[in-house]
Amino acid sequence: MPDHWLEQRRPARTPGGRPIGRGPAVANMQEALMLVAGGKGALLSTAHSATYHARPGVTYVPFVDAEPVGYGLVWRAGDDTGAVRAFVRTAHEVAGSPA
């Protein structure tokens, strides 16, 4: 990932300039949540994570002063099938076209 993208998603410092420490590396959301539940750190996550990744020992605390997180559809190169195109069309109809 480009440095500017990483800095936006996992800044090295707070807005006030204090350094933000790094926890252990993880490979997926479940590993991250296990560490959080075990008291080994915290995790910035999207709002829907509280619904889809609820688990004992983890509390989700919303905050309103962060930039919105954008989403996009992705699929493997070369797998642009009729089903994929139909799904993309339907997603755009339901969610609206990207800004």
Rank of each mutant, 00 (worst) to 15 (best):
N28G: 02
T90P: 00
Q30M: 06
L43Y: 12
D3Y: 08
A47Y: 13
A12C: 09
S97H: 14
D3K: 13
V36T: 09
P11M: 09
P56E: 13
L35M: 08
A47N: 12
L33T: 05
R76L: 11
A86E: 12
Y60R: 03
V69D: 15
T14I: 11
S49D: 09
T59K: 14
A37G: 03
A66K: 15
L73S: 02
A37R: 13
M1S: 07
A25L: 06
G17W: 00
L73Q: 03
E93P: 00
R76Y: 06
V74H: 08
D65C: 11
T90G: 07
G39F: 08
L35N: 02
E67K: 15
P11R: 07
P15K: 07
K40A: 13
L6C: 12
R55Y: 05
T59H: 13
E31F: 05
A37W: 04
A47H: 14
P19A: 10
E7Q: 14
H4C: 11
A54S: 10
P2L: 12
R22I: 02
D80G: 00
S97M: 12
H53Q: 11
E7H: 10
R85T: 02
P68D: 13
T46V: 15
G57L: 02
G41Y: 05
V64Q: 15
W75A: 05
G17K: 00
V36F: 04
V94D: 07
W75E: 00
A37T: 06
Y52W: 14
V74K: 04
P2G: 04
G72L: 08
S97K: 11
G23M: 03
T46A: 15
D3C: 11
H53C: 04
L33K: 03
R10P: 00
G39T: 11
I20E: 04
A99K: 09
V36M: 06
A83T: 10
W5S: 05
R9E: 14
D3N: 11
P19W: 01
A91K: 00
H53F: 07
E31L: 02
G38N: 10
P56T: 04
A95M: 12
D65N: 14
R10D: 05
G96H: 08
L43E: 08
S97F: 14
A27M: 03
G16S: 13
V94H: 11
V58W: 02
A42C: 14
Y52R: 07
I20M: 09
L73P: 01
A54V: 01
V94E: 12
G82T: 08
G41I: 03
G70M: 10
P11H: 07
V64Y: 14
T81D: 04
D3M: 13
R76E: 12
A77C: 07
T51C: 01
